[in-house]
Design a protein around this nucleic acid. Structure first.
Lengths: 396, 396
DNA sequence: CCAACTGTAAGTAAGACTGACTAACAGTTG
DNA sequence: CAACTGTTAGTCAGTCTTACTTACAGTTGG
């Protein structure tokens, strides 16, 4: 419910925003398309487009001929109206120094530059490191600093916006000092978003992956190291009170007549546990993902291993399904992806044994770096919204 | 993001809606108040109020004198602009016939009539029974049929709007035939909402109970019979794919070295389980709630019983907290209410043992029929929204 | 094969209409 | 008398409708 009120200026702002929003969401459109979409008259659409072009937010990108008559001009949101940078920070194995992946995208969604570097956060301050990477990448993409609108960080941790601090950091170094994000914001001069890496992978999954048509879904991340859960409810991510939703790695499991064994889900399906389980079944590999990939590819005696793994996964999923009842669960992460359809079928079978299953299980459909792409998607969405509301305000 | 566009008519509609929305949410207001809230000018506010009054949606309810000058007129949304009826269907024990509670409320939130009857749904068709109750109650309240805008049903079951069917019904009779709600809608000639009783209790808890100031919260319903979970995320209830979110009674519990014992949460904290646990500790009572009430009141040897019960409750809550991370959990239902602060403290202690607890545990603050009141709150909210959008449309 | 013609659609210009704002004012009350 | 409520009059902003100009595609005739 918009509790909005105002005079004719508001009207112009609304109409102009609507036009821009359609251009951003649906791509290039003619005046006639916009007329159809907004229900506005020809002169009004013309006026709105004129103002948007003057403001540098839209431009003519071509002409289209549809039968007799003059060719209609095709308008699109200017790709270089604004840029977003995504930075994905991750622990690259227990020994290696953390690696940072980053990408710049423009308003049209195009990736304009991309990089990956190793950073030792024990010796480098996160703020300095991130600032430098962002600046270099922006320069590489040829984007003017004034057009850099948003920086989206992905961290293997949870972020609590209320206290502005990052918790459960899986990365070494000064990441968990409070106020870090504010500092970054000040240094970069842009808005800065921080989110859990698994949450951002879910964003990518919704945009371009297996969850494209899902109403809601849960994404279970089975990584080489940790595991995590992202919950997408109709396109909105559930983050929890302190950004701690989906921290199911720490979910204590119930031991019925229980001497407290303190078993949690991480002990069952975390990377080391998967490796150990594989070894028990005679499958040896360097990483959990490799072990699962071998099994999925049909190594001898693979079926029992996959079944055992699927059984463990289903334990965690049972809780998720009982609480949330998502129509779709996507398996992702290095291990999830490696498992492919074989793991998916095993999990489906394991779940069906416990209860009549009405939840679809799917495997991630993203081959690239899901976290980085998701962060970019999220960042660009933020930029889109900022542009739309900026139209609102500039007209005031 | 409003993808709204239009001409001056839209402007009028927006402004008028905004005025009505404020009247509905904040209660009686003067023109000056509305000017402040909407930012509109005096003539515009006057015009909007004139139109709302003409449409029977608002009226002058008094005058207020604030210093010199004429006394300002105080406007309020007409209480009798529309009515909502809430109907709560529940199983009253295993032997008794189901009981139905119902109430009529007006736009101002006032309860105008209320009733409670026993209905044998084995012999009476649900549609006929509900229609009759609604009609009688409406007549009792002196509300004209044309003004009855919405009927909200509360059922001890989950409702799947996609298939228009009610699942897991705890009530006997023809409740689970598909299309029932559509039928009811046709018969009553109003919009009809159906929701799980625990969800609706959560609505009441948010409006007038322990969760009034919470950002989000989970409500754990410990009833004399079943248990349930409602999840409120910033004022929106999470319902799940097929209305099955929060069906944690069926959550299978993990047995570590598991011969499948098929233990679920219902077996641990369902009514019979609570009664049995009480008996083990030498506490005998007719209902689970009575047992817990006795313990909370300080019956001898009560502490170990409460601790054991709290331990079981914490098993279920651990899963909820791991998945959702709510800032607040409210214990409700007959057993939860009976437990009072004693149970709350016991659960808090049990939870703190498992992990550093950042979640507040509270006891319901609603003494009346939470489900019925919540259904009425939900119904009236629907009515408010309908009124606001009707203003939008009537101006078109 | 080319040139002119015809019908259709894109975009613009002009005038009418709607709604909100400002400013001034009449009426009330402490 | 001063301050405040609510109305009236006039103005301004923005969109709509209608009519017009211009451009293009396809067709027809030499």
């Amino acid at each position: 419910m918009p509790r909005l009120a105002g005079s004719s200026k508001l009207l112009r702002a609304i109409n102009e925003s609507a036009a821009l929003a359609h251009l951003l969401e649906r791509g290039p459109l003619t005046r006639a398309d916009l007329r159809e979409l907004t229900g506005l008259s020809k002169p009004t659409i013309s006026e709105a487009l004129r103002r948007l072009t003057d403001a540098g937010l839209a431009r003519v990108v071509g002409h289209v001929s549809a039968g007799p008559g003059p060719n209609a001009e095709v308008y699109a949101a200017s790709p270089d109206a604004a840029y977003a940078v995504a930075v994905s920070v991750r622990d690259s194995g227990e020994t290696g120094t953390p690696s940072v992946a980053a990408a710049v995208g423009d308003v049209s969604g195009q990736v304009r530059a991309r990089t990956e570097v190793a950073v030792d956060f024990l010796r480098t301050d996160p703020v300095a490191a991130v600032t430098e990477i962002v600046e270099r990448l922006r320069a590489d993409a040829g984007a003017p600093a004034s057009r850099l609108a948003h920086v989206q960080l992905a961290v293997p941790a949870s972020y609590d916006p209320q206290t502005d601090s990052i918790h459960h950091v899986g990365v070494t170094g000064g990441w968990n000092r409070p106020g870090l994000v504010r500092e970054l914001r000040d240094r970069l001069g842009t808005s800065v978003g921080v989110d859990n890496d698994v949450n951002l992978a879910a964003v990518a999954e919704r945009r371009r992956g297996a969850a494209r048509d899902a109403d809601s879904f849960a994404l279970l991340w089975l990584g080489d190291e940790g595991l995590g859960l992202a919950i997408d409810l109709g396109g909105t991510l559930l983050r929890g009170a302190r950004g701690g939703a989906g921290e199911i790695g720490y979910m204590p499991l119930f031991a019925p007549d229980g001497e407290d064994r303190k078993v949690d889900l991480q002990d069952l399906v975390g990377g080391p546990a998967v490796l150990a389980l594989a070894a028990e079944h005679g499958i040896r590999a360097r990483t959990p993902a490799a072990a699962v990939a071998a099994a999925a590819a049909g190594a001898e005696d693979a079926a029992p291993f996959l079944a055992a793994l699927a059984g463990r996964v289903s334990v965690g999923l049972a809780a998720v399904i009982a609480v949330l009842d998502p129509p779709l669960v996507v398996l992702a992460g290095q291990v999830g992806r490696a498992g492919g359809p074989a793991l998916r079928d095993a999990v489906t079978a394991a779940m069906a044994r416990a209860e009549p299953l009405e939840t679809t299980i799917a495997v991630t459909a993203i081959d690239d770096d899901a976290v980085l792409l998701g962060a970019l998607d999220a960042g660009l969405t933020t930029v889109h919204e900022a542009l739309i509301t900026s139209v609102h305000e500039s007209t005031t």
